[in-house]
């Protein structure tokens, strides 16, 4: 398993009159970890939804290792090697934690027993193994976030899209998740794109950060560059003024 290169080219999406995303282009090289940041409503999740196929872009293309994937159905994009989590977590509530992840694992392993084994292995790496027989609806929010990651990983993606998986975690839990993702990335070469508000995680993980505001890309660079970038300071200071 190795990471796939993700390219976004001139991606755009409108919701009726609202320009949610406009002309966004950036590339995440295979095996890299990049972050997508910006204020609430900037269009980050819309960009994710277009990469994962939940929304079809109005303009532009998404390529995975050079192959166009935009416009495909979500399950086909999963076939192509994209795994995603949902910002508003979507566990299969009435199924156990293990069965949740097993559904993901069935994607590459058609036999239930094998898929269950693979799912159990992922759960132990994410620290959910003890809770595997609980119903997903009984999990706390941080555990549900972990479950999202586990289920996406079970599909054996080449690109992992993480939508605010650190939100609601305590600082020590953030560090555990950061450690897990970094180790995963180093061991498997999995490409990761994360939307994150927890800057502690962004700084620790991302090689590059893409900043969006009002649906447009305003900056891109290393975390150090970004924190000094005038446009970025404007975005965040502007938001503070509004408060």
């Amino acid at each position: 398993m190795s990471g796939a290169r993700l390219e976004l080219e001139g991606l755009g999406k409108r919701f009726r009159g609202l320009r949610a995303v406009h002309d966004v282009s950036f590339t995440v090289p295979g095996g890299a970890i990049h972050a997508l940041i910006g204020p609430n409503g900037a269009g980050k999740t819309t960009i994710f939804n277009m990469i994962a196929g939940a929304l079809a872009p109005d303009s532009g293309v998404v390529r995975l290792d050079g192959q166009v994937i935009s416009g495909f159905r979500p399950d086909r994009i999963c076939d192509a090697g994209v795994g995603r989590t949902f910002q508003l977590v979507k566990p299969f509530k009435g199924l156990s934690v293990l069965e949740n992840v097993t559904v993901g694992a069935l994607h590459r392993r058609p036999h239930l027993a094998e898929a269950r084994e693979a799912a159990a292995a992922i759960l132990s790496r994410l620290g959910l193994h003890d809770r595997r027989h609980q119903l997903a609806e009984s999990l706390t929010l941080p555990d549900r976030k972990r479950l999202e990651v586990a289920r996406a990983l079970a599909t054996e993606p080449k690109l992992l899209l993480l939508d605010e998986v650190m939100a609601g975690l305590r600082p020590t839990e953030v560090d555990v998740m950061v450690g897990f993702l970094r180790e995963l990335n180093q061991r498997t070469g999995l490409t990761i794109l994360l939307i994150e508000h927890v800057m502690r995680a962004v700084m620790a993980l991302a090689a590059e950060v893409v900043v969006v505001n009002y649906g447009e890309k305003v900056a891109q660079g290393t975390p150090q560059e970004i924190t000094r970038h005038q446009a970025v300071l404007d975005v965040y200071l502007g938001e503070q003024e509004a408060l």
Binding site: A54, C78, K90, P91, G104, L112
Partner: peptide, 21 residues
């Protein structure tokens, strides 16, 4: 596999589709 996919669809079709169902 089909049966498990059904259960996943019953619980949340969007999440199911995102994991390849």
């Amino acid at each position: 596999r089909l049966g498990r996919y059904w259960l996943a669809i019953r619980e949340d079709a969007e999440a199911a589709q995102a994991v390849g169902v």
